[in-house]
Amino acid sequence: MARKVTARRVWVSTAAAWLFGFLIFLPILWMVLTSFKTELEAFSMPPKFLLFHWTTENYATVQERSDYFHHAVNSLLIAGGSTLIAMIIAIPAAWSMAFAPTRRTKDILLWMLSTKMMPSVGVLLPIYLIYRDFGLLDRRAGLVMILCLGNLPIVIWMLFTYFKEIPKDILEAARMDGATIGRELVYVLTPMAIPGLASTLLLNFILAWNEAFWTLNLSTSDAAPLTVFIASYSSPEGLFWAKLSAASTLAIAPIIILGWFTQRQLVRGLTFGAVK
């Protein structure tokens, strides 16, 4: 693996890579910096990079004025709830397809994938009308349901690819050792699949947290998660950049940190195993 590379080449690549990386990260960095400025300094021209009056008052104001935590709790409940329910439905399904495949397993997998490709906008109206008639508009339960169904194919697929990597022999060995299917799942499969289960959970939590089609269309206030809360800043009233930045930083910080842990699994989750 260790190929010989000249020191000069390493430095050139390093400089270029850092420059690229910095430019890509700049909008996020700038947002975080702005969140610590006063509204006046947030607008100042030329912009102030580090030498400004650092303040955390925006973070306090965001909570006071707009009930940030209400929406954060909504995000947590909706993303967490939909992911957990999806996992509960998906684990048995993925087990079945990975370890008791039939001739139709491949077709079922591909069909599940194709449901994920249906554009949400194509079914916006029926869903909206069903939700209206059943009183699910602006209800957390309604969002949990739709995000759960929307992400179910990805959850099943990810789990399926992880389960596939567990050698069948080991499960058969457990069976020879006298384990029932239930004990096989508890003592052998689950402990071996924990890394896969964790990254599936994490990635789908992230996807649900950031989902911004159904949340924008099906919730307004009571059930609104952070995506909708942030969107409410799009109609500007007075000086709001610093507060927008503070609210945004709060909304994305936990997810970026979680996301950094899942970056490897991200590829396989989003490409349905087509790239590993």
């Binding site: 050698p167 050792d177 029932t180």
Partner: peptide, 18 residues
């Protein structure tokens, strides 16, 4: 299989890694 009273050694050994 569990009720047949046999035991098996697999080609891959199939040890429980955890």
């Amino acid at each position: 299989p569990a009720k047949r009273g046999l035991s098996m050694v697999f080609q891959s050994y199939a040890l429980y890694p955890h």
